[in-house]
Amino acid sequence: MQNDKITSEVSPLGTSVGLEGRDCVPFFTSDKSQIKFEFWYLVTLFSVVCSAVILIQLFGSRIGLIHSDKLAFFAVFGGFLGGWVYDAKWFYRVTARGKNNQYGFPWQPHKFYWRILTPFLSGTVAFATFLLGTTDFLPIAIKNKESARAAFAICFLLGYFSDLVLSRLAAWAEKLLPKTSNDKSN
């Protein structure tokens, strides 16, 4: 029988400093039920987003979508699917191989919320970064700013690499924004 408890760090005072095992995800009684849920969650998300992309492509003009709206939808969906692919790759890596390279147990139930929210966060980061790039606010040049295909493709990459995008944006903002007297003491 697999032990679902994760050994958490212990503070110098002898108390636990982290959540253990299923304590942070009370919805599932076992790894197997959580894995099944997350699999169907990923399949459902993919189906819904792909259906929305196809419907917007085929019927967008019939329902009154103007080009800029279509461009925005494709940018959001591209970033979302980039994050979805990242999430699905992680899911596959852990479940299909039955291990990860960091810990001695195959499934990490405590990362449930991270895995559920990754596509949404990636889509948001990608879309916001795309908007900053297309308005020439960022020091990057985006060709074909008015192409829905380009918006989808660029945002797919921005969504897939959203962690890297955020770290680069933070580094850029640190150079751009002046330090205050409180920042110097930190």
Rank of each mutant, 00 (worst) to 15 (best):
S167G: 03
W114T: 13
F156L: 14
G79W: 01
Q108N: 13
E9T: 08
G79C: 03
I6G: 03
N186T: 08
V43L: 15
L169Q: 02
V165E: 01
L164H: 12
F152E: 05
K5N: 13
K143R: 13
L132E: 06
I6C: 04
A72K: 10
K179V: 00
D69V: 11
Q34G: 06
T135V: 06
F152R: 08
S68R: 14
L166R: 07
G79K: 00
N3Y: 02
L169I: 04
V49G: 07
S51Q: 11
I66Q: 15
F152V: 05
D4M: 08
L81D: 01
G64F: 14
F137Y: 15
L117H: 12
N100H: 04
A148F: 03
V85H: 02
Y41P: 00
G64C: 14
C50G: 12
V165W: 01
L132V: 04
K179D: 01
I142M: 09
K111C: 12
E38T: 12
S47L: 15
V17C: 01
L42A: 15
P178T: 00
V43D: 06
L81G: 03
Y41I: 05
A170P: 01
G14T: 00
K111G: 10
P119R: 12
S185D: 02
F73V: 05
L131F: 13
H110T: 10
Y92M: 11
E174N: 10
V85W: 05
S8W: 03
F120N: 10
K99N: 11
P178M: 00
S181V: 03
G98F: 05
Y113W: 15
P12G: 00
I35R: 04
Y160W: 15
G18R: 00
L71T: 09
V48W: 10
S162A: 11
L138G: 13
P106T: 00
I6M: 09
N144W: 09
T124D: 07
L45H: 15
D163F: 12
I6V: 07
A126W: 05
L176Q: 04
L45I: 10
Y86E: 09
V48N: 10
P106R: 03
F59L: 15
K99G: 05
F130K: 12
W84E: 01
I63N: 12
G21Q: 00
S181R: 09
K5R: 13
S11R: 00
F120I: 11
G98L: 07
G98R: 02
V25W: 01
F112P: 02
S167E: 06
L42C: 13
F127H: 14
N186A: 11
